[in-house]
């Protein structure tokens, strides 16, 4: 089954309307944090979870909202309704 995502504004839409915006890794390191390792981890690294993870998505061919949702990478299906946009 192809990916369907629930936009908080437009509701359920075909996955190809959206752009993937990366894993939700929480807050970015503080600008004054000099440790290259922290930045590298935040910018590049991933545990590449085979399972459920929280991600950012952008409704590019729709209303243009950014939101987070949870998706199972082993089925490529959304697992629950996204939280309210912040």
């Amino acid at each position: 089954m192809a990916l369907t995502l629930t936009c908080p504004i437009c509701g359920e839409r075909n996955g190809y309307e959206f752009r993937y915006g990366g894993e939700d890794k929480g807050p970015r390191p503080r600008a004054e944090d000099p440790a290259p390792g922290h930045w590298c981890e935040y910018v590049h690294m991933s545990p590449c979870v085979a399972g459920i993870r929280k991600e950012w998505w952008y409704h590019k061919d729709g209303c243009g909202v950014w939101f987070t949702t949870e998706r199972d990478t082993t089925t490529s299906l959304e697992v629950k309704q996204p939280e309210k946009t912040r």
Binding site: A2, L3, G15, C48, A50, T74, S76
Partner: peptide, 14 residues
């Protein structure tokens, strides 16, 4: 390649 990470080996009509 669908530009989002996943471990399925599904094919698409798209």
């Amino acid at each position: 390649m669908d530009p989002w990470p996943n471990y399925t080996t599904q094919t698409t009509a798209h």
